[in-house]
Computed example of a mutant assay.
Amino acid sequence: MAKIGVVHMDLGSKGGGEAVCMNVLESVQDGHDVTLLTLTEPDLDALNAYFNTAVTDVTVERAGTIAPWVHERYGLTYYILQNALLGRYARNRAAEFDLLVSTINELGLGPDAVQYVHFPFDWTVSLDNREHIFHPTVEADSFYERLCTTVGEIDLAELRECTLLANSTWTAEVVADAYGAEPRVCYPPVDTAEFDDVPWGEREDGFVAVGRIERSKRIVELIEIVDGVRDRGHDVHFHVVGPTVDEEYRREVAAMAADREYVILEGELPRERLVELICSHRYGLHGKEYEHFGMAVAELAAGGAIPFIPANGGQHDIVGDRSELEYESVADAVERIDRVLSNRALQRELRIDRAEIERRFGRERFKDEIRAVVAEALGEPVRETEPVSKAGASERGE
């Protein structure tokens, strides 16, 4: 029985990264002694219910005192520093484990770790150049960068010797550009089990958006898109689903919804209600630009909805680069959505079969890949399963 330390800052955010962490814990808890190194005290029962996982046999350990205090006091401010402190703590404990696994991007864990990258911290560049990643709400300067890199004991040669996994072909390319090392592409786990194949004719003519309520999700712009689609004569409505991260932004969204009877601000919903909404509607909307993968997009597709997405980032892997679904701006989105909503034959063509989503992005596929990667890192026999893809080797045959 190997001792495995899984490193993740805060499972309470309930995003795609947290789904990855919970599914990694579930994947490796059988047959291994697993410890979660984190900054908070997670409610595993609540997280199991939220992510439909069964994490039970895991020890939870807060990473010292400084990093948890910074997180409790400042929240997501000093985000990079908090992860540097978390990585340093895990590195200092490395001798107690047979393997360290980070599910919160690349940390200074030593040369033999497994590290799942949603989008790289990229310790090689200044914060000014860290585009499309949530960074601390402090002035970006070289001192802060040097401090984080030093605290985290980041060694680029060691990072290149780690087993690096990336959540999409796009992210894999970004990691390769940053470090000169090609990660394996391991798509995150999309839970498709609860989705039903509701006939198209029985679905409501409306949109569903799923994600945390924060500015990066661009919910205001999504409401403007729905406004424009309605102006084109389509009697559609819009459900906004997700937990609140930014209270100020939520108030802004709530004010817009209050002025529009066709916009329903649902907030965080039980899993059953979320699945019901997706399966009972025809369309999905996603607003985050440079999305690293887009688990919400995959869930919309698995539920039979047609997802419209920004024309950048890793979510292209999900929709197969269908230009009809990829928009550049609010006005462009209105144009593309109008064309799709006006063409029933095109709607049938654009829907993605749930079995295809399960094959490419499903949870059992993810668990098999993680178990194989962990076994390989531990030097254990790897049982037969579909191999993890290499970066750049798209499933479209590129």
Rank of each mutant, 00 (worst) to 15 (best):
G75V: 03
G75Y: 00
L76F: 14
Y79V: 15
Y79P: 09
I80H: 13
Q82E: 07
Q82S: 06
A84L: 04
Y89Q: 07
N92R: 11
A94W: 07
A95M: 07
L100M: 05
T103V: 06
N105F: 08
L107R: 06
G108C: 06
D112H: 09
A113W: 04
A113K: 01
V114F: 00
Y116C: 06
V117R: 01
P120Q: 06
P120H: 06
F121E: 15
D122K: 01
D122C: 02
V125Y: 09
V125F: 04
V125S: 12
S126M: 10
L127G: 14
L127M: 11
R130W: 02
E131G: 15
H132S: 09
H132E: 07
H132Q: 04
P136Q: 05
T137V: 12
T137W: 12
E139A: 12
E139T: 13
A140C: 01
A140Y: 15
A140P: 12
F143I: 11
E145H: 10
E145K: 11
R146W: 13
C148S: 00
T149F: 03
T150Y: 08
V151N: 03
V151M: 01
D155L: 00
D155A: 04
L156F: 15
A157H: 14
L159Y: 15
L159D: 02
A166T: 08
T171I: 07
T171L: 00
A172G: 10
E173D: 11
V174K: 13
V175R: 01
D177C: 00
D177L: 10
Y179V: 05
Y179K: 01
A181D: 13
P183L: 02
